[in-house]
Computed example of a mutant assay.
Amino acid sequence: MQHHVVVTNRIHDEVLARLQTRARVDMNPGLEPWSSEELGRRLRPATAMMGFMTDRIDDTLLAQAPQLRIVACALKGYDAYDVDACTRRGVWLSIVPDLLTEPTAELAVGLAIGLARHVRTGDAVVRAPGYAGWRAHLYGTGLRHATAAVVGLGLVGRAIVDRLSGFGCAQILGVDPAARHPAARNVSLDEALAVSQFVFLAVPLTPSTRGLIDAARLARARPGQWLVNIGRGSVVDEEAVASALHSGQLGGYASDVFACEDWGLPDRPRQVPAALLDAPRTLFTPHLGSAVQEVRLAIEHRAADNLLAVLEGQEPLDHINQPGLIAA
């Protein structure tokens, strides 16, 4: 049987070559994702799919792919992939659970430093006509002697704590009812927001975390707080963050993630709110958490490992479901 693999994003040549040894590969060569209609059309003859963050997989789409045996995700957070639908349809769903951890934690700390030390504003000052050297301005805040809180102590959250431990913070707080880190003192979210100068959001998007940081919590937070989000955009109310920035209640907001990217939410916004883009004291990156060359290559290889295992009649290494088995 000639296998047919759909790859929804451009991948490295060496990973593509691996897949082509076992299957005919239909790869999206561009940066823009296929529409759901286009993806459905391409999946009709497919045996396997390598998916990325810009994809949304639900039962309607799976119904158009009767031969599909695996969706191998080149990502960790799978909130836009319907696990139960895959299971009912007899389709394996696999992720890449840990290769994104270290680079994402590095970026989180980098965003915090860049935000609190006014790197974006300083860059503009140097580039402006007439720059003549140092002047006594743009004084910011450092991590040394600061209280920092990490909300979510999964792999990424724990890696952020590890890195903060080397910066001489006065204390590191952890917010997670199900996990601990020896270098962090676990507290409630309200306590963390009330006392911390830096707050790092590292939680996945779930019904309980959507809108976790809203207007009410921001109003009760420590004034002048620096908030860094590398989890999911919809974990915060972006309009409320913008309002808190404009009022001065929030010291600054840095984010690598945005609500418009949360494809699993039918009511997601279609763009970053103008109020947030126009707000002062912000620093944004376009989902660069895992955008390290060797890391992206390793992620693609791991997704390919999972995909090829199924084509060879084996279980994928990183599966998160058991096709045909679903809880009542």
Rank of each mutant, 00 (worst) to 15 (best):
A124H: 11
R222E: 15
A244M: 05
W34K: 07
M1L: 13
L75K: 13
V7W: 02
G122S: 11
V125M: 14
P273Q: 11
F167E: 03
S94N: 05
L75V: 13
L43K: 03
P66W: 04
Q64P: 04
Y131T: 13
A148W: 01
P45Q: 05
E191T: 14
G152E: 00
R158H: 07
G324A: 09
Y81A: 01
T87D: 00
P97F: 10
H246Y: 05
R18S: 08
G211W: 08
V310I: 07
D256L: 06
M50R: 05
S36H: 12
I95C: 13
A183S: 05
D58M: 08
V15A: 12
A202R: 00
F52W: 14
A303N: 04
R127Y: 08
V15C: 13
M53Q: 11
W226F: 15
T121M: 08
A48S: 07
D190H: 15
V236S: 02
A194N: 12
W263E: 12
W263D: 11
R163L: 12
N9E: 14
T21W: 05
R158F: 09
S247V: 04
K76M: 15
N186Q: 12
G51P: 00
D162E: 15
S165I: 06
A274W: 06
W34E: 08
A221D: 07
L288Y: 11
R144S: 13
P182S: 03
I113K: 01
P182H: 07
L39V: 06
S188R: 06
A17H: 09
P207D: 06
A149I: 06
L68A: 09
L75E: 13
S188Y: 10
S188Q: 11
A221K: 01
I57V: 15
A259L: 07
E315I: 03
A183F: 06
H319D: 07
D190A: 14
M27P: 04
V295Q: 10
V6L: 03
R135A: 15
L250F: 05
I320S: 04
V203C: 00
D214Q: 06
L205G: 03
V199T: 10
A240S: 09
Y139R: 02
R296K: 10
L138A: 14
R42I: 01
I57T: 01
I95A: 10
K76R: 13
S36F: 13
I160P: 03
L99V: 15
I326L: 15
H4Q: 08
P286N: 10
L16P: 07
P266W: 07
M50L: 15
A65G: 03
R296E: 11
V310R: 02
A65E: 01
G154C: 03
E106S: 04
V25E: 06
I299M: 15
P66G: 05
Q271S: 11
V272Q: 08
M53R: 12
V15W: 03
G324N: 05
A146Y: 00
K76Y: 08
Y139N: 02
I95L: 14
Q322S: 13
A65H: 00
P182Y: 10
D176K: 03
L325K: 04
I320Y: 01
E312I: 09
L201G: 00
I299C: 04
L100Y: 06
H137I: 13
G174E: 11
R42V: 02
V7N: 02
L245Q: 11
T141V: 15
V161C: 10
S290E: 03
D98K: 08
A159V: 11
T8F: 10
F200S: 04
E238L: 02
A159C: 09
V257I: 04
